[in-house]
Design a protein around this nucleic acid. Structure first.
Lengths: 257, 257
DNA sequence: GCATGCCATTGATGTACATCAAGGCGGGCG
DNA sequence: CGCCCGCCTTGATGTACATCAATGGCATGC
């Protein structure tokens, strides 16, 4: 694990260095942001946007690159504007638990503590807005609506975390896969053209580590779902939902999820 | 499950009715509160305390009684002042996942959403301060320090939830039990006389539902830990930690936990 | 074009934990 | 006091998923 850490950490620093930090010259990027209106930033009045612009910088990461490592000083907060990021924790022997996947407009680094409680690594080529924590905290004081908004984001994350605990502790492998596809559909379909298609940017190993399973079990359950006519795969990364009802049943949704 | 819900819900209402709601007559209970200084309330200046007093009411619940049910309108927030509360979610077929145990000074109802995302039920005789959400939100606007504090609480809960995901998804039964005892020790020992003793107010079934196991496995792992000299039981509810080192190793602690 | 290596899939086997079942113990109540 | 009833423990058996192992597809690079 240590060789992974150090190596990846270096990559991350290179990644950060390669970013167009500060974005001096581009006038007010936040106003034109793709996720403006969806993300935390929507809590701001248009006239407050320049204050965000002043402290934001933009970074790019490619698959496998780290945004930060568990235990790093938590100096920055992020908003994902494009791509996909995975968050994970590890045990000393290398067992890994992915605690979440982030998609555009998602907030990163909410854990407002001394150090990051998990690592963040790019799944796909991704773009993030980066805010220095100190300066953003100053903004929070001046703009209560922003703080309110963060509290709302935290609430949602907490609720999602509890759903995930239920999944990890009490659902079968089939149900886990069903729930996973179902929640992915709800999160990403609204912003895609086809309402019944899901793109899976992450590997089977990532899915396994998210659901507390192994690669083999994930694969077997997927083929089972396919043979049962619930889903179909155009490629291993592209899922077609053929029977949403069965998928919902499987995921154990009632009101939640 | 439905009969449980309705029955328990009635109990909860009775419990709430039985509480000394409003506490008219007692002048400023918050000032004398047992958990004042530990809990969210510590974010308040002494001169602001009466404003809390004005909106707080106090309720008592006995073991098995509900504080609220998943899906209920989230009209109140709580601070636990005494006892122990369990939070849980259920699947339609009755499988249950306990998402957390609360101890005195813990905050309850952080998920600031329309409806509660989980149920809260007393494990031991418990006392709570109850705040109407609307009125507390008004206070949040007027006292930014309070909102800041809530965000901090949310961060901590989020971090704890991620630790729990790692536990549920990737740890063995032994490690789960070890982690459980270890974190309980860290949470409750500071406030108890004996630094190496843990009282378990919850049943084996509750522990099982918290760790994603069965009662039998919990019991077997406990006896294993006892035979290995890691812990000892004076009663099934009272644990003596005999080898903290082994316990730490087992729980997979590095910095975290 | 072919070699290389990663990723997904599938099969054979193993095992950690669940399930089923049977006492033992202690507390509450008649 | 003694019966009853939950709760905990322990044993026997079952199973869902992990592990081990082999193969094929696809992209990358020489």
């Amino acid at each position: 694990m240590s060789q992974l850490s150090t190596k990846s950490h270096t990559e991350a620093i290179m990644g950060l260095a390669g970013a167009k930090s500060g974005d001096r010259g581009s006038p007010n990027p936040c106003e034109a942001c793709a996720v403006r209106g969806l993300s935390v930033c929507s809590a701001l009045e248009p006239e407050d946007l320049p204050r965000l612009d002043r402290i934001v910088s933009h970074i790019q990461v490619s698959p496998g690159q780290l945004v930060f490592l568990e235990g790093d000083p938590a100096d920055h907060l992020f908003v994902l504007t494009d791509g996909c990021i995975k968050l994970y924790k590890m045990l000393i022997d290398g067992r890994r638990q992915i605690t979440g996947f982030l998609f555009p407009s998602d907030f990163l680094g909410l854990a407002m503590r001394e150090r990051y409680a998990f690592s963040a690594e790019a799944v796909a080529v991704s773009a993030l807005c980066r805010f220095p924590k100190r300066q953003l905290e100053q903004l929070l004081v001046e703009i209560p609506a922003l703080e309110r908004r963060l509290l709302g984001v935290a609430s949602n994350e907490l609720a999602a975390a509890q759903d995930q605990m239920l999944l990890l502790g009490r659902k079968t492998a089939q149900e886990k896969l069903g729930s996973f596809l179902h929640s992915l559909l709800r999160r990403t379909a609204p912003r895609s053209k086809a309402q019944d298609r899901i793109h899976l940017p992450m590997s089977r190993a990532d899915i396994a580590d998210y659901l507390g399973l192994t690669v083999e079990t994930v694969s077997r359950c997927f083929t089972r779902l396919r043979k049962d006519g619930v889903v179909d795969f155009t490629t291993p990364q592209d899922v077609l939902i053929r029977d949403l009802g069965m998928l919902s049943d499987l995921s154990g949704v009632s009101d939640e999820y």
